[in-house]
Simulated assay, not measured.
Amino acid sequence: MVGLALGEAIGAQPLATLKSTPIGQALLVLGATFTALGLLWTNHIINRAVPT
């Protein structure tokens, strides 16, 4: 998120690239997938360390 904000601040328009080009769209989906998997994995590790 910070990288996108910095890119927008300097005028590189990363959001336009992610939304309008096929490669950008693929990278956007890939990034969202990795973020979701990271959250699931972190949740898994926490639940194993501190059982509820």
Rank of each mutant, 00 (worst) to 15 (best):
M1E: 12
M1Y: 05
G3Q: 03
L4G: 06
L4S: 05
A5Q: 13
A5R: 11
L6A: 07
G7W: 00
G7L: 02
I10P: 01
G11S: 03
A12R: 08
A12I: 01
A12Q: 07
A12C: 01
A12M: 02
Q13K: 12
P14C: 02
P14M: 01
T17D: 02
L18I: 01
L18V: 02
S20H: 03
S20G: 10
S20Q: 11
S20E: 08
T21K: 03
T21M: 02
T21S: 14
I23H: 01
Q25C: 09
Q25R: 10
Q25L: 03
Q25W: 00
Q25F: 01
A26Q: 05
A26W: 07
L27M: 13
L27H: 05
L28Y: 09
V29G: 01
V29L: 10
L30C: 07
L30Q: 07
L30V: 11
A32E: 06
T33W: 04
T33L: 13
T33D: 03
F34P: 00
T35H: 07
T35Y: 08
L37P: 00
L37M: 13
G38T: 01
G38M: 01
G38I: 00
L39G: 10
L39H: 12
L39F: 14
W41S: 08
W41N: 06
T42I: 08
N43A: 14
H44D: 15
H44K: 15
H44E: 15
I45F: 08
I45W: 11
I46S: 08
N47A: 14
N47T: 14
N47D: 15
R48C: 10
R48W: 07
R48I: 11
A49I: 11
V50Y: 13
P51Q: 13
T52A: 15
T52L: 11
